[in-house]
Design a protein around this nucleic acid. Structure first.
Length: 572
DNA sequence: GCCGTTTTCGGCCCGACTGTTTTCAGTCG
């Protein structure tokens, strides 16, 4: 898949052109890059199917950029880009990564001081060669050094499941102020992206100053980047950036919309507003200078002739068109999930007993849970031997008699061995209610071998679910090579289910593949892969991943009631 | 370079904050 390579190239072209003072083209290249970045399809596939014409249907891609994509698909490079790169020093665009430095300043630093890289910039700043250069003074030098520090610390994106609790803590602290009338996360956190760049918070108050003071003096704050009347930005102790915006009640919806983004969605929404004779900003929707609405997001979308668009769908694909034509999916909700189908206990590598996991599940309002500990080959995860699984089965039978209106399913996360065989014999598997299979080893085999291996397991008559179908660990391990399309076909034909794993560093399948699966009519299972009772709450992340993949209630197996689920799995 | 129920030419989202000015350019989200 060449999408992300193209994205990087187009962003780089934009940076170079901007340094060279070319007008508007950077805007065009960035627009195209952003569109490809979130494209639900492989550009190579689009090109194979519909050629240049197909490429031009990507928003922001016209004749010239389509030709460049074609060239890259055919030759793996873009001549004009290679030429362009030679016109400026190789590392010059990296200066623009430093917060506060853009194209204009990077250019000036190069022209006046021949600085061509972050390394050289740091040296110059430390020797105080920058202050005194026209508009650069002491403060600029200081900020450059701080910015470089920040970059060195790593600006890696943080897992949603780590960032969201942090943001909620901050919100709880701000809520203690009487002056805060309303408060919400915004940005990528509200869109529930799998990783988060910075924390965005929106607060409603008639006393912004007080909110700003509290926010910038929170114990988590290590440095204040900016502090104004309605907006502040800080760096937290863990290196994350957090931004807050404070506005008046009558702007809450408009501000929430604006601050949630994403950027492309906002731009297109504002363009639509202009077309309809309005102006849209974070204060509201205006006709001339007259305030039309802005208290809720819903009324803004409505006044622009659109259905309400859920935050998870605001990624500037085709959601505005669908909203206009009343064709948006009705996304599954956390409250519709009736149970968790991937849970570990002390019997393998979990922290809690079966009963403890069940108590927590009941607290969450679930009707059922599936205990799915590891099989024997997973020795490192204390995988269960046959006799241990049989013992667990007996215990579940015993516990099930004690619970009313709650059912524990007997399951297992059984290893798919390298040859596609399973880690337990039929004699064991037939005693289970729900068998899930998973790959935990041999990640490096070829795509065709891996696909064959998994299909063999998926076709086993006892296997119902394929757990974490690609094996990726976010920021740690790439997915193994597998032809998911073939897996989807088998799943559809044999009535098997693929998991959306809600564990915060897995989220596997990802949103892109979830959407593909749903389009093919494959039904999905939500599991948290909990290894302690606290993890059961990760269902929130599984659901948000499903929503970002356009899942409706009907697509999710464990949105079924206990009765319906028993029927579906044909459980006695 | 892209795009068109105002345009095939002439626009291109919009506003806050900083640092440097003394009314604004640059940067950011």
């Amino acid at each position: 898949m060449k999408n992300q390579e193209l994205v990087r190239i187009f962003y780089d072209i934009a940076d170079i052109l901007e340094i060279k003072n070319v007008e508007w083209k950077p805007l065009a290249y960035r627009k195209a890059a952003r569109a490809i970045e979130v494209l639900g399809e492989d550009v190579e596939e689009i090109y194979k199917k519909d050629g240049i014409k197909g490429l031009k249907e990507i928003p922001g891609v016209g004749e010239r950029i389509a030709e460049k994509i074609e060239e890259f698909i055919k030759t793996n490079k873009i001549k004009e880009y290679e030429k362009l790169k030679k016109t400026i020093p190789r590392h010059l665009t990296e200066l623009m990564e430093i917060p506060g430095l853009g194209a204009k300043k990077a250019k000036k630093l190069y022209e006046r001081l021949h600085i061509k890289s972050i390394k050289e910039l740091e040296k110059a700043a430390k020797q105080h060669k920058i202050s005194g250069l026209e508009t650069f003074k002491e403060k600029s030098e200081e900020n450059i050094l701080k910015g470089i520090e920040l970059i060195k610390k790593g600006k890696g994106r943080i897992l949603l499941g780590v960032a969201l609790p942090m943001a909620r803590n901050i919100i709880e602290e701000l809520k203690t102020l009487k002056d805060v009338k309303d408060i919400s996360v915004a940005g990528s956190l509200r869109r529930m992206e799998e990783t988060i760049g910075d924390i965005d918070i929106l607060a409603i108050s008639s006393n912004p100053k007080k909110v700003m003071d509290k926010f910038t003096s929170l114990k988590e704050v290590s440095r204040i980047l900016a502090m104004g009347e309605t907006k502040s930005m800080v760096i937290l102790e863990n290196g994350m950036q957090a931004d807050i915006r404070v506005l008046d009640k009558k702007s809450y919806g408009a501000a929430l919309q604006y601050f949630t983004g994403n950027k492309g969605h906002n731009i297109r929404l504002r363009e639509l507003a202009i077309k309809k004779g309005y102006k849209l900003n974070e204060y509201g929707l205006f006709k001339k200078d007259k305030y039309i609405c802005g208290r809720t997001e819903g009324e803004i979308y409505k006044n622009l002739g659109l259905d309400y668009i859920e935050p998870e769908l605001r990624n500037n694909t085709n959601e505005l068109e669908l909203a206009k034509n009343r064709k948006l999916p009705k996304l599954v909700k956390l409250g519709e999930i009736k149970g968790d189908l991937h849970v570990h206990t002390k019997d393998s590598d979990g922290d809690n007993t079966i009963e403890e996991m069940c108590r927590e599940a009941i607290n969450l309002g679930y009707e059922y849970i599936c205990i799915s500990d590891h099989s024997k080959t997973r020795a490192i995860a204390n995988g269960m031997k046959e006799e241990e699984l049989l013992k667990q089965i007996r215990e579940i039978d015993r516990l099930n008699k004690r619970f009313k209106r709650f059912r524990i399913f007997k399951g297992c996360e059984v290893d798919i061995l390298n040859d596609g065989n399973l880690d337990f014999s039929d004699d064991i598997l037939k005693r289970l209610d729900i068998v899930g299979a998973a790959v935990h080893s041999g990640f490096k085999m070829s795509e065709s071998k891996m696909t064959e291996r998994i299909i063999k397991a998926l076709k086993d008559k006892y296997v119902k679910i394929l757990y974490h179908p690609t094996g990726r660990l976010i920021n740690q391990r790439e997915p193994y090579q597998v032809d998911l399309n073939s897996l989807f076909d088998v799943a559809k034909e044999k009535k098997k289910f693929l998991e959306i794993n809600g564990m915060i560093n897995r989220l596997d399948l990802d949103d892109y593949n979830i959407k593909k699966a749903v389009e093919k009519g494959v039904r999905l299972v939500l599991g948290t892969d909990s290894h302690s009772k606290e993890h059961l709450r990760f269902m929130e992340y599984g659901v948000s991943q499903a929503r970002r993949g356009w899942c409706e209630k009907k697509d999710i197996v464990n949105a079924l009631s206990l009765k319906e689920l028993v029927r579906l799995f044909n459980i006695k």
